[in-house]
Design a protein around this nucleic acid. Structure first.
Lengths: 110, 110
DNA sequence: TATATCTATCGTAATATTGCAATAAAATAA
DNA sequence: TTATTTTATTGCAATATTACGATAGATATA
C-alpha cells in the first residue's frame, strides 16, 4: 500500500499526473517563475529569493530537473539553471489538450 | 518539518501548486477524463472503469471535490459527479497564464 | 597550497499521500 | 419493516514528500 498503481492507467494519464506533480509545490512554481523572469539563475539566488534552506532548494531543483523541466549548466562554482524549452512546450501542449477536452459544459444529469 | 511553508509564497503560487496537486495523480486524471467523456457518472462506474477499491475512488473524488473541480448531486442512492465548469475554466486560465509567461526561450547564459 | 564559495548528497524527523478492509449512513425495493 | 444498493467515513499500514543540518565535492581566489 501507499504506492501509486501506475499500471492501472494509460501512459498519457501517468505522464500528465507526473508533470502536474512536478509543479505541485509553490516553491517549484516560484523557482520556475524566477527562472522565467531572470532567464537564468543560480541556487544561491533562490535561497535569498525564497526563504528555504539551501539543501531544500537544491532538492526542488533536482525534482524539476528529473521531470525534465529545467537544465543546469556548470559555470565555475555556480550552476546556471534554465527552463528546458522543449519539455516546457510538451508540458504546455499536454495541459492544453487536457483542458481542451472539456469544452461543452456539463451534461444533462447535472 | 515536512510541512509546506505556504507563507513563503504568493497567493498565486500557492493556488497554482494546489490545483496542480489536485490533478497530480493518474487516478484523478482518469476520473476527470471519464467525467468529461460521459458528462456525468457515479462512483460505481469508476470502480469498474479504474481498478481501485471503492473506498479509494471515493477518496480521490473527495480530493477533486475539495479542490472545487467537480460537483456531486445526490440521485437516489447514487451520486452524479460532474466537472465544475467555472473552476475548470479558472484552472485552465491559471495554467495558460503560467505557460504563457514563458515565451521567448532561454536567456543568453544557457 | 590553503581558503573561500557554491552546490549536491546524506541522514533524519515530521508530515502527507495512497490504498484497502471494515463499517456506517442514506435511500430504494421487496 | 427488512433487505439491498450505493457512497462516505474510519482506521490502519506502506510509501512519498518536505525540510534542514551536516558534510562532501568541485572550482575559484589569495
Amino acid at each position: 500500500m501507499g504506492v501509486t498503481q501506475t499500471h492501472l492507467y494509460t501512459e498519457e494519464q501517468n505522464e500528465i499526473a507526473q508533470l502536474a506533480k512536478a509543479i505541485a509545490h509553490p516553491a517549484r512554481i516560484a523557482i520556475l517563475q524566477h527562472l522565467i523572469k531572470t532567464k537564468s539563475c543560480i541556487n544561491g539566488d533562490l535561497v535569498l529569493e525564497i526563504g528555504l534552506a539551501q539543501a531544500t532548494i537544491s532538492q526542488h531543483l533536482r525534482e524539476l530537473k528529473d521531470a525534465g523541466l529545467i537544465q543546469g549548466t556548470i559555470e565555475g562554482t555556480r550552476v546556471n539553471y534554465c527552463i528546458d524549452s522543449e519539455k516546457w512546450d510538451a508540458l504546455k501542449s499536454h495541459f492544453e489538450d487536457f483542458f481542451q477536452s472539456y469544452a461543452d459544459g456539463c451534461g444533462p444529469a447535472c
